Computed example of a mutant assay.
Amino acid sequence: MNKRVDIQDLGLKDYKETWDFQEELFQRTVDLKIQNRRGNEQRETPNHLLFVEHPHVYTLGKSGDFENLLVTEDELAKKGAKFYKINRGGDITYHGPGQIVGYPILDLDNFFTDIHKYLRLLEEMVILTLAEYGLKAERSKGETGVWLDVGTPFARKICAMGVRASRWVTMHGFALNINTNLGYFDLMIPCGIKDKAVTALNVELGKEEVNIDEVKEKLLKHFEVLFEAEVIKQKTEA
């Protein structure tokens, strides 16, 4: 089992370009697994984790409700935002500058074959990271992602998650609000959940800006431990 995970930080990159790159990495791994199953030679399957920030964009999961987007696509265009219906689980979400988006393209055969465990470990990675900033983040029953003040009238979401998996290969992932312009969330019903607020790390800490690279390092540290992985940072970009 190959537990090495290649880390690429793509910087600020268009959503569709990044989605295409994800699909390319995903398909390579799936194809390799099919070849391994058919042949005698067993080659290692790779694992990737992409970090990226996207220009303003809204994405709707395959089971999502288009009515959770509260404005027309023309109105989005006027705000410099794009919209895509995509092949992950979950409902509608927003990506934009100041948000860490993480896309793990992992062959779970290298780790464990359990999607629920996979999601819980991604959540735990975020929970442990936020704890380093003095925040008590937690899960909300029946609602994937990471929240603050669960079970109170002040419950608010700080990290959204939605994944796809085929042949135990994952894609899509998580979006953690760091210095995100929360006004863009007003144009939708986040993840299709009404009457729940959204927040960002800088808001919770009362800071104008939080160092995003520092947060990424903390996420990677916890990812490495939780997945018992060896992270390898790549200098090349998509």
Rank of each mutant, 00 (worst) to 15 (best):
G90C: 06
F51S: 02
S166Q: 10
K207E: 12
G98E: 01
D114S: 09
G192V: 04
L182V: 01
S140P: 00
Q35E: 14
I127Q: 06
R164A: 13
Q8Y: 08
I105W: 08
I92A: 07
L205K: 08
E53V: 11
G96R: 10
E214H: 05
V150I: 07
E75F: 11
R167A: 10
E132V: 00
K3Q: 12
F112D: 08
F174V: 14
Y184L: 07
Q27F: 03
R167V: 05
F66R: 15
T29H: 02
E75A: 15
F185C: 04
S63T: 15
F185H: 11
T129S: 14
M1N: 07
Y133V: 03
K79E: 15
R139K: 15
L219P: 05
N47T: 12
E123Y: 10
V71N: 11
L148V: 00
K207R: 10
L32N: 01
W147Y: 11
D14Y: 06
E53N: 10
M125F: 01
E143V: 01
P46K: 14
I232S: 10
I92L: 09
D91N: 05
E67D: 15
K13Y: 06
I178Y: 10
K79S: 14
K194V: 09
N47E: 12
K207T: 00
L108W: 03
G134I: 03
K157E: 09
C159P: 06
H54W: 11
N40K: 09
T93C: 12
I127Y: 04
E217F: 01
V231F: 04
G102M: 13
A137C: 12
V30N: 00
D31W: 00
L106D: 02
T170V: 07
T129E: 07
G96V: 11
P153K: 06
L226M: 06
E23Q: 14
Y133F: 14
N87A: 13
T180A: 06
P97H: 11
Y103D: 06
P55K: 04
K117M: 08
L128C: 01
P97C: 09
T18H: 04
V231L: 13
R37D: 14
H222M: 06
V198M: 14
K33W: 03
R120T: 11
F227V: 02
I115N: 04
E224W: 08
K218A: 05
P46M: 09
N202S: 15
D6R: 13
S166M: 05
N47V: 10
F185M: 07
L122S: 10
F112G: 03
E237W: 00
L25I: 13
E132Y: 00
I212Y: 01
M125S: 10
K16R: 14
